[in-house]
Amino acid sequence: GALNVLPESSLFNYDFDTDHLGLLAHDNLLIGGTIRSQSLVYNSVVLLQKGRVTARYNKIFLVPIEEDARLQAGNERQTNTLRFGDVILGVGICYESSFERISLKAVHNGAQALLFLSNTQSPPATALQLRSVQVRSAETGRVALFVGMAGNTSMTDAKGKVVWRMPWASSERRAISVPLYSGLTNAVHFSAQLSYILVAVTCATLVSLLWKGLHRKAERDHQG
């Protein structure tokens, strides 16, 4: 069946264990909310299938103060990919779309499309998040879905261009076919190494300038 996706939602703050959470859904439902796990409360995305949680991602980059004062951050080493049947989806929650690492890690772990669930309800903030999602889409060569509470819910093509977008404050349910891609873009291939290469080039340049400077000084001292 199709995957039903709802946003990271303030309507669904499940303050109980995931055992009970599963009872809420009998369909293929992907939804975000704050979820307790033992004594810790996370901001999570869960995949519910036939009343069971079959995949879960705990938000790694919590919003400073608002979230990190009361929630537990997900482990940075967990993967942010969820498997749905044969499909691997890369997920991020709310402003995690600002972090390049989120989409790079997902794609390195086989993500065929990206999915960002948000609960942001101000027009400028959702517009900004959508822009970040477009960048994540373009750099990874994946179609990205942005799912919001109040507006800007949208799909990009694999080059980051917004294909369609839901109007602000509209209540909509839309059936779509999401194209799935594999393979790595140059940005994904080289982004990890690029910073090391730039540091190496900078160090080599500094050493060479220092060397030349010392050499010239030695020449001048010799002439003088």
């Binding site: 069946g1 199709a2 995957l3 039903n4 996706v5 709802l6 946003p7 939602s9 303030s10 309507l11 749905f84 499909v87 989806l89 065929q112 499309a113 309800q121 060569g141 994946r142 879905l145 799912v147 919001g148 509470m149 109040a150 507006g151 819910t153 694999a158 839901m166 602000w168 404050a169 509209s170 209540s171 909509e172 349910r173 839309r174 059936a175 779509i176 076919s177 999401v178 194209p179 799935l180 891609y181 594999s182 393979g183 790595l184 873009t185």
Partner: peptide
């Protein structure tokens, strides 16, 4: 990147401005 297939998705936007 290569196109490998499609995933059918129902997207829901609640339309709530809080």
């Amino acid at each position: 990147p290569r196109l490998e297939g499609y995933l059918e998705v129902n997207l829901v936007q609640p339309g709530i401005v809080g």
